[in-house]
Design a protein around this nucleic acid. Structure first.
Lengths: 204, 204
DNA sequence: ATGCTTGTTCGGATTCAATTCGGAAATCAT
DNA sequence: ATGATTTCCGAATTGAATCCGAACAAGCAT
C-alpha cells in the first residue's frame, strides 16, 4: 500500500474500499470485478484506490483479511462454551453458528468464501485454521482421555480443512443433495465415532 | 473464434494450447498468466488462441477439463480392485495412487489443482466427485452390511469433498506439519471407525 | 483568522493485456 | 493445379489497471 491513512477521513475511505471489494467479490468474484466498479461502489474516484493499495490484488487481500478477522472473532468467544459440551453438541453448535455467520448480510461472506479456496488465497485464511486448531486443542485438554487418540495432528488437519471446505461448499450449493442438518450430524458422528472407537466408550 | 478444429493440424494446435495452459497455470496460476505467454509456450501466434477458444477463460476451462478427464480415467479402473479391499487398504491404495498421479510431470497437475478450488471452478470438477461417489457406492454394494450405515449421502459428501481438498492442500504444503502417511492412516481410520462403531465390529 | 505544512482526492494520461480481423499460407477436393 | 476450405498470424483496436500532479481539505502553529 502506497501510504498509510493518517486522518479519520482516509480511514473511512480505506474502509469503504474494503467493504466495496467484499460486495463486488460476492457479486461477481474477484477476477470479474474491475477497479472502477469497486471505486463506484465505494463512492470514490478510481485514483483513490491506489493511494492506499498497491494494486487490485492488495484490495482483495485486505477484503480477505477482513473476512478472516471477523471469522476468528466469531470463533474465539465460542471456545469456552464448546469445550464443555460433548463432541456432537460442540460440533453442532459450532457449525450452526458458523452457518449463521456466513448467511449474515444477505450471504455476503458466504458468497465471498466461494472464491477463497484457491490455495494461493488459502494462506491468508490461516488464522481461521489456527483458531479452529486452538478450539480442537482446548477441547482435548478438557477431555484428557482423548489425548490418547492416535494421530491427533493429522486428524485435526483433515477435520478442519475438509470440514471448512465442505461446509462452505454445501452452503453454496444451489440444490443441495442433503440438508445441512444431516451434514452436521455426520460431522459430529465422524469425530465421536473415531474417539469412541479408538478409546472405548467415553463421552457423556 | 470458437471454431471447431477440422484438420489434424488444428487438432494439434488446440492440444498444444491446452498443454501450454496447464504449464502456465502450474507456474503462475490462471490470473497471472497472459494470453501471450500461453501462445509462446504453445509455440503459436497470439491470434491463433482465439480461433478455437472464445476467450482466456475458455482455455482455462479446457485445461481444467483435461485434468478432470485424466483424473477420472485414473480412478475408474481402480474401482474393481478397491472394492475388494477392507476400508483402510482401499483408502490407502486410492490415496497413494492419487498422490502419484498428482506428482507426475513434475507436479503439473498438483500445481494446477492448487487453483481449482474456487467454487466457481469446482463445478467443472464434478466428474471427479461422481467417480469417487461411484467408487463409494460400489464399495457399499460389495459390503452390504454397510448399507445400514446412517446418513450415507452426507457421509460421502463430507468424505469426498473434504478428502480431495485436504489431500491436495497437504501435498501442496511447503513444509507439512505431518507426513502423508499419517494423513492416509487417519483417512482410513475415520471411515473404518464410523463403520465399525455404527455397525458392530465387521470388516476383515 | 491567516499562512504554512501535511494529508487526501481525483480524473486525465499512460501502459499493458485481451481480443479482433483481414489477408497470407497450408491443406483439401476435384 | 486450381478453386474452396481451413488454419495461422500479427498489427490494430479496445478496455481495464495503474500513475501522477494539480486541486482541495485538515492540522497546527502564530
Amino acid at each position: 500500500m502506497a501510504r498509510k491513512p493518517k486522518q479519520q477521513r482516509s480511514k473511512a475511505t480505506v474502509d469503504a474500499i474494503v467493504e466495496a471489494a467484499l460486495i463486488a467479490i460476492a457479486q461477481q468474484g474477484p477476477s470479474a470485478t474491475t477497479a472502477r466498479q469497486v471505486a463506484d461502489i465505494a463512492g470514490i474516484g478510481v485514483g483513490s484506490l491506489y493511494e492506499y493499495f498497491e494494486d487490485k490484488d492488495a484490495i482483495f487481500e485486505a477484503a480477505g483479511a477482513r473476512f478472516v478477522d471477523d471469522t476468528v472473532a466469531m470463533i474465539k468467544p465460542l471456545i469456552p462454551e464448546l469445550v464443555r459440551l460433548n463432541i456432537r453438541d460442540a460440533v453442532a453448535k459450532l457449525l450452526f453458528t458458523f452457518r449463521d455467520f456466513l448467511e449474515e448480510n444477505n450471504q455476503l461472506y458466504l458468497k465471498c468464501a466461494r472464491h477463497a479456496f484457491s490455495l494461493d488465497m488459502v494462506i491468508y485464511q490461516e488464522p481461521i485454521n489456527r483458531a479452529l486448531m486452538d478450539l480442537f486443542t482446548q477441547y482435548l485438554m478438557h477431555h484428557p482421555d482423548m489425548l490418547r487418540l492416535p494421530n491427533i495432528p493429522a486428524l485435526a488437519y483433515f477435520y478442519i480443512n475438509g470440514g471448512v471446505f465442505t461446509v462452505v461448499r454445501h452452503l453454496s450449493e444451489q440444490q443441495p443433495t442433503q440438508g445441512f442438518d444431516e451434514l452436521v450430524t455426520v460431522f459430529g458422528d465422524i469425530l465421536a465415532s473415531y474417539a469412541e472407537h479408538k478409546l472405548g466408550l467415553p463421552e457423556a
